[in-house]
């Protein structure tokens, strides 16, 4: 089990690094999906089976589908890779890497100071999680549902073609001209505009 845990963790970190360094967004997405699936395996080894399922269904499933969908709508193609090549240079990584490394060391130091790692206690089952969710965290559940509703409405409003303001109209015309391709038409030109 422990071996599985370390392998999965290594896969997750590696695939994340690879995701970050990809120029093509579709490739990056695939690496991200791999990373998420690896995290799901980590959850499984930690005993959180239900969480592992959710990780696969929601993250690797629903959220990734959203990303893929957006990438298809944008239809970036080879030109985007060229642009990315101009934007992403190895030198740019130094600053953030140093900062992040400092942060990582600090957190690790704090964790070390708190206490040593021991073998995990008995795994926490879905039953306990559900009881906690609808017991002390009921208010949190309600708030989360509000948040999701708000996100739904917000996403619909922001993404709507008929959004108010000067973004309307001309923008949607331009996308058709610049980003040709049948997929774009199929995705972007939803039947919202009667010809």
């Amino acid at each position: 089990m422990a071996v599985l845990f370390y392998i999965a963790a290594l896969v997750a970190v590696l695939s994340t690094v690879l995701m970050l360094t990809r120029l093509n967004s579709v490739h990056a997405l695939l690496y991200l999906t791999v990373s998420l699936l690896a995290v799901a395996v980590v959850f499984y080894t930690l005993g959180a089976i239900f969480m592992a399922v959710l990780e696969v269904v929601v993250y690797a499933g629903a959220i990734m589908v959203l990303f893929v969908f957006v990438v298809m709508v944008l239809n970036l193609g080879n030109r985007a890779v060229e642009i990315e090549r101009a934007w992403v240079r190895p030198g740019m990584f130094t600053g953030p890497v140093i900062l992040a490394a400092i942060l990582g060391f600090e957190v690790a130091y704090l964790l070390m100071r708190t206490g040593s790692f021991t073998a995990p206690a008995a795994p926490v089952g879905p039953r306990q999680v559900a009881l906690a969710l609808y017991g002390p965290y009921l208010l949190g559940v309600e708030l989360a549902s509000f948040l999701l509703l708000g996100a739904l409405v917000g996403a619909y409003h922001v993404g709507s073609r008929r959004a108010p303001g000067r973004m309307d109209g001309s923008g949607s015309d331009r996308i058709r001209v610049t980003a040709g391709g049948d997929l774009v038409r199929a995705g972007a030109d939803r039947p919202s505009r009667p010809a």
Binding site: P96, L103, L110
Partner: peptide
């Protein structure tokens, strides 16, 4: 975001 990160680093450093 970089500003946030620097702030966090400093804060955690103080904490540590």
């Amino acid at each position: 975001a970089a500003g946030l990160l620097v702030g966090t680093v400093i804060f955690v450093m103080i904490l540590a």
